[in-house]
Nucleic acid binder design. Sequence first.
DNA 1: CAACATGTAACTACAATGATTACATGTAAT
DNA 2: ATTACATGTAATCATTGTAGTTACATGTTG
Lengths: 142, 142
Amino acid sequence: MSISSRFSVGIHIITLIEINKDGVSTSEYLAESVNTNPAFIRKIMGMLKKAGLIKVQPGIAGAELAKDLLDITLLDVYKAVNVVKDNELFSIHDNPNPDCTVGRNIQNTIEPIFFTAQTAMEKVLESMTIKDVVKDIIEKEN
Amino acid sequence: MSISSRFSVGIHIITLIEINKDGVSTSEYLAESVNTNPAFIRKIMGMLKKAGLIKVQPGIAGAELAKDLLDITLLDVYKAVNVVKDNELFSIHDNPNPDCTVGRNIQNTIEPIFFTAQTAMEKVLESMTIKDVVKDIIEKEN
DNA sequence: CAACATGTAACTACAATGATTACATGTAAT
DNA sequence: ATTACATGTAATCATTGTAGTTACATGTTG
């Protein structure tokens, strides 16, 4: 199991739109950098648009950021591309036997632990912004 | 995407072996509590055994814990059942375009962030032991 | 040897992913 | 308005992982 690459592709897209802000970021242009096909990029762009992170319009070439770099966290992107449902990073087997001490309690016991673990992960994503990513890439280029 | 229920089932199995320590925990008995089939339970038991968490022997009915309750963390179980490969909770799209500033740096920029996030999640799992789970279940019964 | 449990392999149905094609919709320039 | 081109979106496909199930080989004990 791995969290879908839509997440890393989403980060790539937003980062490139910023770095290419003086140019026109079409789905074809972005697809070439990501190394996939334009339709897949457009699907993800649709999700980012729906989440209010980027601006795209039918018929008009190119995408722009809809928010300041500092106001787009990696958690925003993660949620936008719908890779993990709320509180469902871990799946819990269903219908354990209610006639068994463990069976009738395991779900309620495990659920808060999984929630805490998932939240800890998401907090890290929330602490990083696209600005951090852009900055790091620019530094790596020098 | 969700992390396989093998993880929660693994926790269930170990917990039940402990709570049923005066009885015999066969794969059939465990399967009934988990509400699945014995072969699936045996597959997971094989993983837990390989990881040194439980003791099982071909031909001999029942399983026992191989370690003290306090020494089995949820991270141990998580790693045992092989639900997420090391450093691969998040997948990163491969072969981004090296001719693009973003393409040639995105992987190296994102990788440590994802590692930090995954580690934060796993630290939570490491802080909880089967003893905590058993204790919570017993408390819930009263 | 009989009864029974574990260890595995094989097969199935199902769902998610990412690639790809195709086409409808929308915009702008001529 | 027609042409050129970009976005939006649906449909299809191959691949992969999951969980369920059956079957049987292997091992132990009475």
